[in-house]
Simulated scan of single mutants.
Amino acid sequence: MNLLLDSHIVLWWFSNDERLTPNARRLIEQADEVFVSAATTWELAVKTSLGRLRMPEGFLEVVVEQGFSHLPITEVHALAVQSLPWYHRDPFDRILLAQAIVEGLGLLSMDKAMAPYGKFVMGY
């Protein structure tokens, strides 16, 4: 199985945060390929510029060092957002979900607001 990581999962993985459950760790470790979206990089950069968090130094390189792959946002991903029900209004989470659906990835998130999207979201 291939996974796409929600932004908080990426940060928790990098910092070895205890909020990342053993099951979530196992999913990441056993995945065939793990992706970090350009949307995650964008979201973390925005929140860093607002002083709400501190992005890991050399974030793009750290993603690769951890064995993860970068996933760009394409026009197909952007258009897929329009067909999503409005269970969740966060634009970053909506593009991640669209990417997961288009690319056939499991989206690993601990955000319970993502639960209504069903089989594409795991970890909550």
Rank of each mutant, 00 (worst) to 15 (best):
E65I: 00
V34F: 03
E18C: 00
E57D: 15
V10D: 01
R94S: 03
A31H: 11
H88E: 07
M1H: 14
V63E: 10
I28P: 03
P22M: 05
I73T: 15
V63N: 03
G51L: 04
G51V: 10
L3C: 07
R26F: 11
L71T: 04
G67T: 08
R54H: 06
Y117A: 05
E43I: 05
E61I: 12
R54G: 02
L50N: 00
L108Y: 02
D93L: 12
V64M: 09
Q66D: 04
A115V: 14
M55P: 02
L4P: 12
V46H: 09
Q82T: 12
D17P: 05
L4V: 13
R19Y: 02
K112A: 07
W13T: 14
L96D: 05
M110D: 02
Y87M: 04
F14A: 13
V102K: 06
P72V: 06
D17L: 00
E43R: 09
L84R: 05
E57Y: 01
A100Q: 07
S83R: 15
H77T: 11
D32S: 11
A45N: 06
V36E: 09
F68L: 13
F35G: 08
A100Y: 01
V63R: 03
S83D: 15
V81Q: 06
S7D: 02
S49T: 07
V102G: 03
V76Y: 05
I73A: 10
